[in-house]
Design a protein around this nucleic acid. Sequence first.
DNA 1: AAGTCAAATGCAATTAGGTTGCAGCCGGAG
DNA 2: CTCCGGCTGCAACCTAATTGCATTTGACTT
Lengths: 142, 142
Amino acid sequence: MKASSRRDHDFRDLLTSRGLRVTEQRLLLLRKLADVTSPISHPELTERMAGSGMDRATVYRNLLTLAEAGVLVRAQLGDNVSRFELPRTMSSDHSRHPHLVCTECGNVRCLPSGTVKLRGEATKNEVSEVQLRGRCAACVNA
Amino acid sequence: MKASSRRDHDFRDLLTSRGLRVTEQRLLLLRKLADVTSPISHPELTERMAGSGMDRATVYRNLLTLAEAGVLVRAQLGDNVSRFELPRTMSSDHSRHPHLVCTECGNVRCLPSGTVKLRGEATKNEVSEVQLRGRCAACVNA
DNA sequence: AAGTCAAATGCAATTAGGTTGCAGCCGGAG
DNA sequence: CTCCGGCTGCAACCTAATTGCATTTGACTT
C-alpha cells in the first residue's frame, strides 16, 4: 500500500526531527491517530490499540512525549480527561481549531478555525484554546 | 455578626431562586467558597471543610449541583482536576457570557457577551457555554 | 403544629484515569 | 558489530471521581 508507507515516511521524519526514536509502537500510535477525526483520550486510544499488544503505560507516555514535542495537540474539554489529536496538516498549519463537546451524545466535534471570532476584550488575552459546550447539530436534528 | 448573616441571606435567595433546598451544608460550603479568592478543587475544599463533619460525597455532589445550576463556575486547568468558583458578580444568569480560564493563575474571568462571535458551522449547534483557555491579560503583562 | 415526600446527606465501596519504578529490549550512533 | 541510553512491558500505586443505599430533613400541605 503506497498511501500507508508514504504516511509512515512522514511519521518517521516527524519523529526524528524532534529527536525522538522511531519505534514500531509510535508508528502504530500515529497511524491510529491519523485515522481518527476528533481528539481522543488515553483510555479510548488504549482500547483501540488492544490488538497490537501495546501497553497502556506506553500509550500514555507516548501521548505525553509527543504532545510535549509538539507532534500532538492536547485538549482539555471539561470532563477531567485529556484528549490528544494530530494537527490537521502536519507541517504548516499548527493552528488550533475550536472544539464542541456535545452534552447529549458526548462526542467531540472539531470546528473550522474561522467559525469562532474573538474581538474586543477577548483579544487582550492569550487564548490558546476555544471550547463550546452544547448539543451538536446531529443531536439537535434527531 | 451582621456581615455573615447578610451573606447567608443572599445565599438563601440564591439557592431558592434556583429551586434548590437551603441546607446547613450548602451554606457552609458557600461561605467557604466566598472566603477563597481563586477556584478550588473538590479535594481541597473537602480538606477545608474537615471540621464541619461534612462528607466528601456531599461536597462533591453539591459542587456539581451548584455548578449545574449556574451558582458556581467550573474551571479546568491543565491537570485534569475540576475547580469551582463563586462568580464575583452573582448575576442572575451566569451561563450566558463567555468565560476565560487562565491556565497560569487559575482564575476565571467573565467576558462581555459580544466578545465571542459564532458563525458558519458553529451556529448549527445549540451552544450553551463558551469557554476560552489561555493566559489572562494580567498574567500576560506580568 | 403535625404530616408527608422527595431532596439531600452520610457512609462505604467502587471505578477510572493518571503516574511511577524497574528490569529487559531495541533503535541508531560510532 | 557493539554499545548506550531511550523505550517498552509489567505491575503496582495513587488520587479524583462516582455511585448505591439507608437515613435524615427541608419545605410544602393539611
